[in-house]
Each structure stands twice: as C-alpha cells, then as structure tokens.
C-alpha cells in the first residue's frame, strides 16, 4: 500500500517537473514560458518532497517532516521570483504575443523613467 502511494507521488512529481521544463522549452514568448516552471515545476518538486517525507517517516525511527520546510519555501518563493522576472521582462520591453492594455503601457514608461531617476 505504502509502496503504491510512494510510487504515485514520485511519478506525479517527476511528470510535472518534466512538463514544467517542456513548457520552458516549447512555449513561444517569455511571458508564456513563465507559466511552465512556476506552476508545474513547483507542484512536481512539492510532490517529490512529500514522497521523501513519507518515505523517511517509515524508513527511520520517528516521523520526518522537515521536507515540508522546503516545500513551503518553494511555494512561497516561486510566485515572488515569477513576479520579479515578469517585471524585469516588462522593463526590458520583451516581445509578447499578448496585447498590452493601453493604460499600462503609459504607466510602464512613467515607472521606467522613475527607475532612472532613482538610480542617479
């Protein structure tokens, strides 16, 4: 029973990790590529970490929960790095297949001039 649960968690994790990187490879512009790693890879690795916690809880004496720490950390940091990367891409004016709402383009120009002001 335990073996089936572990196999399921490990396979799900590996497949989602794989799909995340496949998205990184296949999708056509940067903003679309951002979706693959932030979602699929995070859940994939989270699932692998839970598998590891289950495995070591039954393997050694006593329960082992510290893998949850990495899972939590990844779930908190993945959106933050995605947000920063998207911001950097907008700042660098990367090509996007998606249309930008008109108002935000003006805003972006204003904020990028702000950034230059801050620097000097």
């Amino acid at each position: 029973m335990l073996e089936y649960l572990l196999s399921f968690l490990i396979l799900t994790g590996a497949i989602f990790t794989f799909i995340g990187s496949l998205g990184l490879l296949r999708l056509r512009d940067f903003y679309m590529r951002l979706h693959g790693p932030t979602k699929a890879t995070t859940l994939g690795v989270g699932s692998l970490l839970i598998a590891s916690a289950v495995f070591f809880s039954n393997h050694d004496a006593g329960i082992s929960l510290h893998e949850i720490l990495i899972t939590l950390f990844l779930f908190i940091t993945a959106p933050v790095s995605a947000h920063l990367l998207a911001k950097a891409a907008l700042h660098l004016n990367l090509h996007s297949f998606a249309k930008m709402p008109v108002k935000s383009i003006k805003e972006k120009e204003r904020s990028s001039s702000d950034a230059i002001d801050v620097k000097h």
């Binding site: 959106p79 907008l90 709402p101 935000s104 805003e107 972006k108 702000d114």
Partner: peptide, 28 residues
C-alpha cells in the same frame, strides 16, 4: 493575492501599478 494569482490556473501576476490600484496579470 499576487502570489495566489501566480500559483493558480493559467495566470501570472506581472506588475503592480505605482499607485497600487491595478495589478497587471498575464493569462496563458
């Protein structure tokens, strides 16, 4: 909210406007 949007179906939050009243979201 921004983190929730990034982790949930097909959307990534990209930028918070200067006046904190709009969030720019990219949907796949």
């Amino acid at each position: 909210l921004a983190s929730s949007i990034t982790l949930t179906p097909g959307t990534v939050s990209a930028k918070l406007s200067e006046d904190r009243r709009y969030l720019l979201v990219h949907a796949l």
